[in-house]
Simulated assay, not measured.
Amino acid sequence: MARPDLFDGISEFLAVVRRGSFRAAAGELGVTPGAVSQAVQTLERRIGLPLFHRTTRHVALTEAGERLLGEVRPAADAIAGSLSNLASLSSKPSGTLRLLTHPIIAREVLTPMLPAFLTAYPDIAVEVITDTKRHDLVESGFDAGIRIGEFIDQDMLTVRVTPPFSWVVVGSPAYFAAHGRPTTPDDLAHHVCLRFRLPPSGDLYRWEFEREGIAVAIDPPGQLTSDDSALLLAMAVAGLGLTYASSQNIRRELADGRLETCLDNFAPAQDALYLYYPRSSRLQPKLRVFIEACLRSMRERSRG
Rank of each mutant, 00 (worst) to 15 (best):
A64L: 02
E63Q: 11
I79F: 11
N85P: 04
R73P: 05
I47Y: 06
G48M: 06
G65F: 01
L61P: 09
A76P: 01
E63A: 15
A64C: 00
A75T: 03
L86S: 13
H53W: 09
E63T: 14
R73M: 10
S91G: 09
R54P: 00
R54S: 01
R46Q: 03
S94H: 07
E71V: 04
R57F: 13
G65A: 00
A76C: 01
T62E: 08
V72D: 06
S94Q: 15
G48S: 11
R57Q: 15
R73C: 02
T62C: 11
G65I: 01
V59I: 09
L49S: 09
S90P: 00
G81N: 12
G70Y: 00
G70D: 09
P93V: 07
A76S: 05
G81S: 09
V72Y: 05
S94K: 12
F52M: 03
E71H: 02
P74V: 03
H53V: 05
E66V: 01
N85T: 11
L69W: 14
E66M: 05
A75I: 04
L68C: 04
L61H: 10
H53F: 09
K92T: 15
L89D: 12
T55R: 04
L43H: 10
L43N: 13
S88R: 12
L89Q: 13
H58W: 11
S88P: 03
A64Y: 01
T62H: 07
A60M: 05
S91Y: 07
G48A: 05
A78G: 04
G48Q: 08
G70C: 08
H53K: 11
H58Q: 13
T56F: 11
S84V: 07
L49K: 15
S90D: 10
A64D: 01
K92A: 10
T56L: 13
E63H: 06
R73I: 07
S88K: 12
T55I: 02
E71F: 01
R54H: 04
E44P: 02
T62D: 03
V59H: 04
R46Y: 03
H58I: 06
A60P: 01
E44N: 03
E71M: 00
E44S: 07
L51N: 05
A64E: 05
L86R: 15
R73L: 14
F52Y: 15
P74F: 00
A75M: 09
R54Y: 02
L61F: 06
R67F: 07
E44H: 03
S94L: 11
E66F: 00
T56Q: 14
K92P: 10
L49Y: 14
L51C: 06
R73Y: 08
S88V: 06
E71A: 07
P74K: 04
P93Y: 03
